[in-house]
Simulated scan of single mutants.
Amino acid sequence: MTVSRLQNIPGIGVDRVGDAADSMQDADILRLENLDTDLRPPAEALARTRDAIGDDAANSYLPFLGQWPLRQAAALRVGRAAGVDYDAASECVISAGGLAGILNVLLSILEPGDEVVLTDPTYAGLINRVHLAGGVPKFVRLEPGADGWRLDMESLAATIGPQTKAFLIASSSMPSGFVASKDEWRAIAELCDRAGAWLVYDAAMERIVFDGREIVHPAGLPGMRERTITVGSVSKEYRMIGWRVGWIVGPASIMNDVRLVSLSNVVCQVGIAMPGATAAITATDDGVAAAVAEWESRRDFLMAELADLPVVRPHGGWSLLVDTRSLGIEPADASRLLLAHGKIAATPMTNWGPTADRYLRLVFSNEPVSRMRDVRERIRASWRL
């Protein structure tokens, strides 16, 4: 019998599509189903990680809250992005990846039944973590348009109620590629203040934005430093998925509780990974700008190739969404047909939000344009368009 905390957690779907693609053992399959990237991590991070393997100090549970140079680097990085100061000793905890950090934060701030506002669509793993922490997800609709996604302000206002405890917002957001504008962040901040709620900011893709868009860190808005808890990681921007290193930066008023949850949950981080993470954050050239330029070019290629399909333009991130239901094809069927007939692995967005189940996600971070040249022909053959 399934325990109650798992009853609303069906999974994320990516694993099933990935397993099916792996079982085919075919190098011609375009891997557009999972948030991987073929772009290399910073050279300084690789070198420092190799050194750490032989460093006895890195082979330890201690320090439980993360190695001090990394805590300093992470607090400084978030502070610079927001334009505010953070104390590394009392306002930063290192986590075993960004999602572990988000779960630790949710466990620190939620009582059973508290409501958490998320965007729709959003990553199913965020929704699942709200459930695991005893929270109740409430969704604000992202409205697709000719130029991409925008926050539906009426939907946003309608999510607020007496049980609203937190907003859990990512920008750039996955899977949509939504990037919150300053006006949208201001609207969220105003409602946070009105509800007396926390803003849990998933900053994993903060700098992965396209078209010269402005990056706005919500902790820098008036009154938001004391309401915002920022969770970041080296996984996306720094292309260091396997390191499993993240950080939680927020006001001292909540960080002692986050520290207690962190000690009670994963206990510590990956010791040999933290020196490399520190090197990435402090590198003279972290490679983020070059990586973003490459991902943007891949987005542009797919947008051009799929111009005759109902694709919503992402403003950042690693993926885009295709409304296959408007073509008369359910996303699960579209995914199955693509893999069987087009050798494309892609994930249906079932359980990624109330309106997300009409979309199929295509990840453009892991395949170069040279391998995607015939993507439109593969799709046409699979869906008989």
Rank of each mutant, 00 (worst) to 15 (best):
S155P: 07
V311N: 08
A203I: 00
S365M: 05
V245P: 08
S297K: 14
G317C: 03
I272S: 02
A180N: 09
D114P: 02
V288G: 02
L338I: 01
G353Q: 06
D26T: 04
F301V: 13
E190Q: 00
F210M: 14
V267F: 09
L362M: 11
G125L: 12
E154N: 07
G353T: 07
G13P: 01
A158M: 10
T355Q: 09
S326V: 12
V84S: 13
V78T: 00
D183Q: 00
A340W: 08
R213D: 04
I94A: 04
P251D: 13
G98H: 01
W149R: 00
E226N: 15
E296V: 02
D56I: 13
S95I: 11
A381G: 01
S262P: 07
S171W: 02
L306K: 09
I241E: 14
A75R: 01
R80I: 00
P162R: 14
E206Y: 04
A75D: 01
N351D: 11
R244P: 04
R150W: 01
A252S: 07
W185Y: 07
D38S: 10
A195F: 08
Y61S: 14
G98N: 01
A290L: 09
E367L: 14
G177I: 10
D357R: 15
T122H: 11
V363P: 15
S253R: 11
I29F: 07
G196T: 14
G134I: 10
S176I: 08
V105Q: 04
I102Y: 06
W352I: 14
V179Y: 04
T2E: 15
G113H: 09
A88D: 11
S23E: 05
I379M: 00
A189P: 14
D56Q: 11
R371M: 03
S108L: 10
S297N: 13
K165A: 03
G134T: 08
